Computed example of a mutant assay.
Amino acid sequence: MSVPLWFALAIIGYLGIKLARPPLWLVIVLLLGGYLLADSLLAPALDTAIK
């Protein structure tokens, strides 16, 4: 069975929010921060550190 990555991430995110109940502001800050880091000069360094 092949599941698209966006769908798997959406399900994991939904379950994480439902079960862990983090504050909404924390979810927004993490999403916005990740989006901004992905488009920054640090992106190549983060990519090599993660891999």
Rank of each mutant, 00 (worst) to 15 (best):
M1R: 10
M1Q: 07
M1N: 08
M1H: 11
S2C: 01
V3E: 10
V3K: 05
P4T: 07
P4E: 12
L5K: 06
L5C: 02
L5E: 08
W6Q: 14
W6A: 14
W6V: 12
F7S: 13
F7M: 11
F7H: 11
F7G: 09
A8G: 06
A8K: 09
L9H: 08
L9T: 09
L9E: 13
L9K: 07
A10I: 09
A10D: 06
A10C: 08
I11Y: 04
I11M: 14
G13V: 02
G13H: 01
G13Y: 01
Y14F: 15
Y14S: 11
L15F: 12
G16Q: 03
G16E: 02
I17Y: 13
I17T: 06
K18C: 00
K18Q: 12
K18A: 12
K18I: 04
K18N: 07
L19F: 13
A20D: 05
A20R: 07
A20L: 14
A20T: 08
R21A: 10
R21F: 01
R21M: 05
P22R: 03
P23M: 05
P23Q: 09
P23F: 03
L24P: 00
L24C: 00
L24I: 11
L26I: 10
L26Q: 10
L26R: 09
V27G: 02
V27C: 05
V27S: 03
I28T: 07
I28Q: 03
I28P: 00
I28A: 13
I28V: 15
V29E: 06
V29I: 15
L30G: 07
L30S: 11
L30E: 06
L31T: 07
L31Q: 03
L31V: 14
L32F: 12
L32D: 01
G33Y: 04
G33N: 07
G33L: 15
G33S: 13
G34Y: 05
G34Q: 06
G34E: 02
Y35A: 14
Y35Q: 11
Y35M: 13
L36V: 12
L36Y: 09
L37R: 05
L37I: 10
L37C: 06
A38G: 07
D39R: 15
D39G: 09
S40L: 02
S40P: 01
L41M: 10
L41C: 00
L41V: 14
L42R: 03
L42K: 02
A43D: 05
P44E: 00
P44H: 01
P44K: 04
A45F: 15
A45V: 14
L46P: 03
L46E: 01
D47C: 06
D47G: 10
T48L: 12
T48H: 13
A49I: 10
A49W: 14
A49L: 15
I50F: 11
K51L: 09
